[in-house]
Write a protein that binds this DNA or RNA. Structure first.
Lengths: 349, 349
DNA sequence: TGACTTAATTGGAACGTTCCAATTATTGTC
DNA sequence: GACAATAATTGGAACGTTCCAATTAAGTCA
């Protein structure tokens, strides 16, 4: 099996100093003479010394473990993959490593992975909660003083920090844009009503429908899995609504891509025949055809912000909850189509 | 900050037994009387005991750390996200956690994250190498007896196990299928010639072109970033080739989706106007419009196999290199279009 | 009751590193 | 050379858990 590990005792012996001096060198302490430091460092390189963080963690506080737990609900959705990439960038630069686990929306799995992460002594946790997560799920962590940042989906009642996008404003902006293009029947497609994100985005839809003086019709709200496949499956239902909608704001970009797929499967052209707006602005929104009009959240930026907030709390040694509502921005590309003019309206009549 | 950690000493005191008995209970040892076990377990629950793996790791061998390192080159590519999800499933079920790091194809970052993972005492490593990775990069790990499984991209000369798809056979099957549909000018789109995967897939393309008695034309090989955006950007180049191709096998599914995007941007219809074949069979291949004809690799399955192989080597305490070439399968959907008949050929003339 | 066997529990040292008070070495001044 | 101050190094114990030999407890038989 493995060669015996090289330890600080081995380094001390080879360098002719004490183990305490080796430890001081490892800590970058100014108490060590430069010549001694150079000698010890050279020996470490020669002997291929690999630091043992587990041993160091025994003596130091949990904030020094240099491990961040990251729990996401669906890594196969590009949004969450990008979120994790954003977290990873910041976390790596700070000399931490991330334990990343994917829960595939399972509460049981979420509990298991969090428990496992705690055994390994994580310094903090960033999580995009599985559907149905409650404040009680976070209580043991918070009680143990482990900083937690909840991202994307809020968990009400949890005394944890959060980074969420301005869902309400974002969808509202999307609906208002479609209305300004002349659309009077605007659907809201995708998502399930068991998350705060859904509630907020739906509220934004309702706000904007009222603000634009449009009729609020429950039939125009079409739930479904928040995935590309879910978006495609929703299209037949959307098109069969009495007084068929001419446009939709979608729960997220994945649903929007799926709606475009579903339209094409029925010989319709997204943008030209039906206006589509997404939410997220994932990497592929720009290069899709038609290029997706969407609400820009910047998932990688969001991940970076969540990581920065967590590191701040770890370094402060105090977990005072802080909420960041990440502003969003309407990005108009092609999928929303052109204005619906009066002349075209006459043709239809 | 945090409450003082509950230790085995605390449990022992509260249960009226020795710390060694608590340890035996933690290890599930049969040497403990059932009544004693029940009492100790109850006290652990009451006091909210959280195991300290770092401390245990000090006394046990590295294979017992229960941490697997997973390094991927591009987490925003759905293929690698699915690979990681497959690894995670197997690893979690075995009671391990995964350290997942994304290198974004950077060798420097790859070295940093591997070094960091070693400090934490990983039991083994699964990596999809960044472009340009060499056997020397894996040598310290292999030398230290840490099992390594290389996935997707091989690293020649590394004495590590590997799980790769049968790239050559797969692309060959795709080309042969297009040829059987009557295509005589078949392009190979996407990827860069600095990875083993590219070489193998290109070799498969050349094999099949020869086997079908078609002319091997270097112009039909169009390199570019192996992403969706890269695929879209390649389309103008593909279409401007003298004796324009009527079909393409793509380096991977992301490139294939991009080629479809690029065709539509020029008013052409994938399948009808130009036949497209991908490689990977990611989740979205089935629901894309047109549904993608592709070579099925099953990235999640591949991740699972890599994890199983690594766990086997960890448990065997011996890192004998083993190579698994994952067979691939042509999945015919819509994007390859229909046969190019003689009657149509005449129309063109 | 004592001897023997098996079951159950225990105490001490080990693991690799850090930290802190104690010790030693070096430098500067008189 | 003696003394004081500062720089540098050190030894021992701590951290939480495991492991193993030693010890104790329980059961059976003569």
């Amino acid at each position: 099996m493995s060669k015996r590990r090289v330890t600080v005792i081995d380094i001390a012996r080879a360098a002719g100093v004490s183990k305490s001096t080796v430890s001081l060198v490892l800590q970058g302490s100014s108490l060590v003479n430069d010549g001694t430091r150079a000698k010890v460092s050279a020996v470490m390189r020669e002997l291929g010394y690999v630091y043992n963080r587990g041993a160091a963690n025994l003596r130091q506080s949990a904030s020094k473990s240099k491990i961040i737990g990251v729990v996401v609900n669906d890594l196969t959705n590009g949004f969450f993959a990008e979120l994790a990439v954003g977290v990873d960038m910041v976390v790596q630069s700070a000399g931490f490593v991330q334990f990343l686990s994917n829960t595939s929306e399972s509460l049981d799995r979420q509990r298991e992975v969090i428990a496992s992460m705690r055994e390994h002594g994580i310094s903090g946790l960033i999580m995009s909660p599985a559907r149905g997560t409650e404040a009680a799920d976070l209580k043991p962590l918070v009680g143990a003083g482990i900083p937690v940042v909840v991202a994307v989906r809020n968990v009400s009642g949890a005394k944890a920090s959060s980074v969420v996008s301005d869902n309400r404003e974002g969808i509202s902006a999307g609906v208002k844009h479609l209305a300004s293009l002349g659309h009077r029947r605007i659907a809201f497609v995708g998502g399930f009503s068991d998350t705060a994100v859904f509630d907020e985005r739906l509220a934004g839809y309702q706000d904007a429908v009222e603000a634009c003086g449009l009729a609020l019709d429950q039939e125009l709200i079409v739930s479904g899995p928040p995935s590309r496949a879910g978006g495609a499956e929703a299209v037949p239902r959307v098109l069969s609504i009495a007084g068929a909608p001419t446009a939709a704001v979608c729960f997220n970009d994945a649903v929007a891509f799926g709606v475009c797929d579903g339209l094409r499967a029925r010989g319709l052209e997204p943008a030209r025949d039906f206006a589509v707006v997404g939410f997220d602005d994932v990497i592929e929104a720009k290069t899709a055809v038609p290029a997706l009009t969407t609400i820009s959240v910047d998932p990688q930026g969001m991940g970076r912000r969540a990581a920065q907030l967590l590191l701040k709390q770890i370094n402060a040694g105090k977990a005072e909850p802080e909420a960041i509502v990440s502003s969003v921005r309407l990005v108009v590309r092609e999928s929303c189509g052109r204005p619906v003019h009066d002349t075209i309206g006459r043709k239809e009549a």
